[in-house]
Design a protein around this nucleic acid. Structure first.
Length: 726
DNA sequence: ACGCGCGAG
């Protein structure tokens, strides 16, 4: 292995650095403030020691001078917790305005808000609060509000000028999630509109009256383009701050018309990077060798290995244990801990527990450990340089998960996981020359997925020309056209590409994939909305059934109790109803917490993923509320499941498939040959005609979540699509 | 006879 410390991707010139990079000293653990006294004093000491603390005044001045500011802040700079407090103290919340900070993940919004509330010495939900789906911990006195980026997008549907906010900070913008990208485009529009409104309208006294008018329009579902109608209304300008951890701020700066960018140093310990001499033909084997090399030759400290998926993690776990048995007894103190998102939470927790005395912990993780969770105690990172990534083919409409090479930025993020608490080492299982050939950053999500949902939301915000919309990076024309076509076939947009009334507006209001929103609207006409609300909630979460490898047969038997000969949709409804009956039965005599605990036990006995079921139950109550507010008729079809299946056919007609003589299926819309996924209850029965909800490409093209229908229902219930073809 | 990286509303 060769050692090379030069692990930085090229640094672009900033307009000026707030703290000169050359002055940057890497602090050691003993440099951290010695903490004494009560918790409040400790917090204050920690705050003052953050790199950002010394530039508070200059940062506030920058925000005053510039409407848009790009802040490049390295890990550990304290930007996420401190900047909002600086701005609050700097007077940015006068007349009740709010500072909003968006995060790509719910857990980050919650934990950061808790921390800041504590630092401010206030109760969470008062001056400092957070808002995420299903949980709004804010009040009329909230001035600093942390939230998910997706939630702010939803908020914009109700308040298109985001009039309650004086400042919006988009954090972790370098991650380029689809929500961040859409939000940036929207914020750019809102900022322009708000500063235009100032120039147009000098009559400041009118503000409150106009705001009242706007609020009245919130409930007006027929309002086609609030943004357009409200032009001329006076709003104070909107300050926009884009925070990114990637060193290249140029893209953001150019997008916002040459916005000023500043740099804040971080606090990260140095990480030595090692590369292999030659390309490794088998990265799993190379990872195994490296694990043992570290274990036998390096000092204490835990190891984090990045792998691509559950199956790979489980096989590496077995291989480590196998090789461990061949070592002399004194060297066997190595503990393997897997972590990936579908692992039940109590097992995920094991990755955070310290290893028993004398043991070294080796964590086998997917890229959940890259950003979503931070595991303490990591000193060594093993990075094979690959990741499982979603790709979307706009021509076929097929999504697949492929193992691809990481980007440079991703490799840097992974190695950084070794330097959180002290200097660390990162072993990249490829030669240094290969690093140079990696893409600088990962392709933004907006270029890798189906855009129907995003387009529906933009249309609801009054953006009619999607192809002409000013995206930070434009998705392909084909991807846009494909999604427009899908929205048209669902009746969400008219043939001149405007949001349809009322269907399109109703669909945009529901926090669901457009096909599922359409299914709810149709279900109210078919008198089976009760059933469809459950089906759609269950389809919106992944992996309801949990099948551990060692208890495969038991899990199969458990699933049979719920299965319906008609297909997976009714099976999912059966699971939901069984859980509901169980909750109703135990609710008396148990408090909420105890009920939850007993439900989790029930899930375990029935091989159901309790986190997924909990999520589905939350979604169900939310969309039920929406449906009622929209005036949809929430009725049940009772035992008449024929009615429900007809409604499925009417909703998911674009995903119909017919059996072929060989036993495979032909998807009617694309003509593609597909197979029923073995996890479907219809895997053996193979009915003549089916509808499905998911098409996944692995070794074959598999369809999942399937229900049997009658072929003749298609021209009857979806004549707009099938009458012409047949 | 399969196996799904991570997120969000």
């Amino acid at each position: 292995m060769t050692n090379n410390n030069n692990n930085n991707i090229p640094v672009n010139e900033m307009h000026w650095p707030l703290v000169d990079k050359a002055d940057k000293k890497k602090p050691k653990i003993r440099d951290l403030p010695y903490c004494q006294g009560n918790r409040k004093q400790r917090l204050e000491q920690q705050r003052k020691a953050l790199p950002i603390a010394s530039v508070e005044k200059r940062l506030v001045e920058e925000v005053q001078k510039n409407d848009t500011l790009i802040i490049v802040g390295e890990t550990g700079s304290g930007k996420t917790t401190q900047l909002p407090q600086f701005l609050l103290n700097g007077g940015f919340c006068h007349d009740g305005k709010i500072i909003g900070i968006t995060q790509p993940r719910r857990v980050a919004a919650v934990t950061v808000a808790k921390r800041v509330a504590e630092e401010c010495g206030v109760e969470l939900g008062q001056k400092v609060g957070y808002s995420i789906r299903f949980e709004d911990v804010t009040s009329s006195s909230t001035r600093i509000k942390y939230m998910t980026d997706g939630l702010l997008l939803r908020e914009a549907l109700l308040d298109p000028f985001l009039s309650r906010y004086s400042v919006i900070i988009v954090d972790e913008a370098h991650e380029r999630t689809i929500h961040t990208d859409v939000l940036l485009g929207l914020l750019k529009n809102v900022q322009n509109a708000r500063s235009r409104s100032i120039n147009k309208c000098l009559n400041i006294e009118n503000t409150e009256a106009n705001y009242g008018k706007l609020l009245k329009r919130e409930n007006d579902a027929n309002c086609v383009s609030i943004l357009k109608r409200c032009q001329g209304v006076k709003f104070p300008s909107l300050k926009l701050i884009i925070m990114s951890a990637s060193l290249d701020a140029r893209g953001f700066s150019e997008y916002f018309g040459g916005a000023r960018s500043v740099y804040i140093q971080g606090r990260q310990f140095p990480v030595d990077i090692f590369y292999t001499h030659h390309a490794e033909p088998d990265y799993v084997d190379a990872a195994l060798i490296t694990i043992f090399q570290i274990h036998l030759e390096e000092g204490p400290g835990d190891i984090l290995v990045f792998l691509t998926g559950q199956e790979e993690i489980e096989s590496v776990e077995r291989l480590v244990q196998e090789r461990l048995r061949q070592l002399p007894e004194g060297s066997q103190k190595l503990l393997t801990v897997p972590i990936f998102s579908s692992l039940p939470s109590e097992q995920q927790m094991k990755a955070f527990m310290p290893a028993p005395a004398g043991f070294r912990k080796v964590i086998l993780a997917t890229n959940i450990a890259e950003t979503s969770v931070t595991i303490p105690g990591i000193k060594y990172v093993i990075d094979p340089g690959v990741v499982k990534a979603r790709t979307y083919n706009a021509h076929t409409g097929i999504e697949s998960l492929d193992i691809v090479k990481t980007s440079k930025a991703q490799a840097l993020q992974r190695s950084g996981r070794a330097g959180r608490e002290r200097p660390g080492k990162c072993f990249r299982l490829y030669p240094e020359s290969e690093f140079g050939q990696l893409a600088d950053s990962t392709e933004p999500e907006i270029k890798r997925c189906n855009l129907s949902n995003v387009i529906l939301q933009l249309k609801a915000l009054g953006v009619d020309d999607i192809i002409g919309f000013d995206f930070l990076e434009k998705p392909s024309r084909m991807a846009i056209v494909k999604s427009l076509e899908q929205l048209f076939l669902l009746g969400a947009i008219t043939d001149d590409s405007k949001l349809s009334d009322p269907i399109g507006h109703q669909m945009a209001r529901l926090p669901l994939d457009p096909v599922y929103s359409k299914a709810l609207i149709l279900a109210s006409q078919f008198n089976c909305l009760e059933e469809m609300l459950i089906a759609v909630a269950m389809l919106s979460v992944e992996s309801i059934f949990y099948t551990p490898r060692e208890k495969l047969e038991e899990a199969r038997t458990a699933m049979k109790c719920f299965s319906s000969p008609e297909g997976d949709h009714i099976t999912l409804i059966n699971v939901y109803r069984a859980s509901d009956e169980f909750v109703e039965k135990i609710k008396q005599g148990n408090d909420k917490e105890k009920t939850e605990k007993k439900l989790r036990k029930w899930c375990k006995e029935n091989f159901i993923n309790s986190r997924s079921l909990r999520h589905a139950r939350d979604i169900h109550s939310q969309i039920r509320r929406h449906a009622e507010q929209m005036g949809l008729c929430v009725a049940s079809c009772g035992d008449d499941m024929l009615q429900f299946r007809r409604c499925l056919a009417a909703s998911f007609f674009l995903n119909a498939a017919l059996k072929q003589p060989e036993g495979t299926y032909r998807a009617l819309a694309s003509g593609q040959s597909v197979r029923i996924h073995p996890s479907s209850v219809l895997f053996r029965t193979k009915p003549e005609c089916i509808i499905f909800n998911e098409l996944v490409q692995t070794n074959h093209c598999y369809i999942r979540n399937i229900t049997r229908i009658d072929f003749l229902w298609l021209p009857e219930l979806a004549p707009q699509y099938y009458a012409v073809q047949n």
